[in-house]
Design a protein around this nucleic acid. Sequence first.
DNA 1: GTCAACATTTTGTCCAAGACAAATAGTCCA
DNA 2: TGGACTATTTGTCTTGGACAAAATGTTGAC
Lengths: 301, 301
Amino acid sequence: MLNISQVERDTGLSKDTLRMWERRYGFPQPGRDAFGERLYDAPQVDKLRVIKRLMDAGQRPGRLMDKSFEELTALAAQQTVARADGTPPAAHTDLIALLQSHDSPALEQHLTHLLLRQGLQQFVLATLAPLNVAVGEAWARGDLAIFEEHLYTERVQGVLRSAIQSMSRRQDSPRVLLTTLPQEQHALGLLMVETLLASERVPCIALGTQTPLQDIATAAAAHRADIVALSFSDAFPLRAAAAGIASLRPDLAPSTTLWVGGSLVARLKQLPRGVCRIQSLADVLPALEAWRSASNRSAPG
Amino acid sequence: MLNISQVERDTGLSKDTLRMWERRYGFPQPGRDAFGERLYDAPQVDKLRVIKRLMDAGQRPGRLMDKSFEELTALAAQQTVARADGTPPAAHTDLIALLQSHDSPALEQHLTHLLLRQGLQQFVLATLAPLNVAVGEAWARGDLAIFEEHLYTERVQGVLRSAIQSMSRRQDSPRVLLTTLPQEQHALGLLMVETLLASERVPCIALGTQTPLQDIATAAAAHRADIVALSFSDAFPLRAAAAGIASLRPDLAPSTTLWVGGSLVARLKQLPRGVCRIQSLADVLPALEAWRSASNRSAPG
DNA sequence: GTCAACATTTTGTCCAAGACAAATAGTCCA
DNA sequence: TGGACTATTTGTCTTGGACAAAATGTTGAC
């Protein structure tokens, strides 16, 4: 039996939201302890967790509340199957099976092996990019536990960061500043971009995630960045992304290019002038080439 | 001007607490926007941050509220001076100056140089551990911008992860599971512990930050962990830490040791049986030794 | 048929004031 | 000096009302 604070931590739903759902939909319906405070039992928390997962996948709570736990899990499974229609999951199921086997050394070995066989660029583009999607979906289906996804993220970070660290850097490259806005916690996208650039010997000024807008502009000026690259995952609020981009652009020097990437950007309507949309990881290196030729044209030599 | 949500994120003080302080002490005294919602200006948020910092150091809010920002910073400075009594800040000021110079390659070079000269263990224990404190204090003083601190964190992560990745692992070691509770975002502590263990050829099952309680227990069982290690920075709510530890302990197998570390743990009163307090990074390797001998005694051979 | 503008529903967060347990400080006494 | 008791401090929970932002549905023009 959990109290409302613990449920908030466990499910990611705020206390206010939990109380409002109870008031509005009649679910959850927690018991009370001796002091009149809410106590949630395990089945209700499980159901809340599935609901949260489905909401992260785009569903709205109103439609989900009256369904049973079984209906909800079925719905979750159904959703990802429908989307993963024609994609060949062969190589991915191997790795996901490895994740489920909890053999941490084998996982690391497998990733390193793939990296060595494919080379850095192919590893990122052909293996990691689709694998990330597959892992996300497996998690949404309930096939992967959170801790299994965490282990995956950590292992990939280890492999990528180690690869980045060992690359030599050219000094005549563009200065690329890499980060995300506050509220965006996903670091893997940034790291994959950094890896691709490192493979072209372009060093990055990586700030990790969640840099305040004002600081991004200040940092870009301090480091005399040629390119500022932001990453937006699907979970990021669309409006906030558009607003953030629009307010950041004029704070950057006109000569600084602003790249925006991540799964969210496909849904952004119109971008301000001087903002470059990176639809997928495959666009990163072409965008780098484009920047180089544009830069040469304006300042030859 | 920030709204209450942003202040909550920025300071780590809950909305409830912010409203209660206003009601009870008359500070903060936010303005209101067109919709009657609280708007905090920058000076008040700065003051809240110092107050939070002093509270993390053991002060109680009632005594701090009516002091001015200057009095509070003086108090904070006094405290840190008192704490940093005999430590020579020479090497740290070098690195902090490097951070302020925005010379990213030089920073990385300097860190790598220190690592090679000191070796992994000394680098972590003698350089990084006090440097983290110094960086945190410089940030609190306003000497370092957020983006400079971010850059520091990223660079250190790169160096440590790359070092970890290149260490070989012994298979007859304890299985150590490494993570933090939800709400705890600081990953560097975990990474330093992982580095120390890697230097002893002990491989870790690193889950990164923010693993739900239930998942930690599940993961520990799935990986047959001998040791579960949690890290708590001093920004973490004390009560939540105590509650989390108390509720996790019985969910772990009795034979699994639970380590709790980080700057918060000094303030935890009494720990449940079977929970080991890691006061500082220097305690990690001794604790490992202690585990080994205890393990040998109970299961010799 | 497609797109844009508008209206409507849904949904999350904020607000206020009251209550009370847990933690801390203060006091008394041996 | 230390232990037991009381008083104060402090954070979190409670209820119910309000309303903006997001999502959905509808209309009309091209």
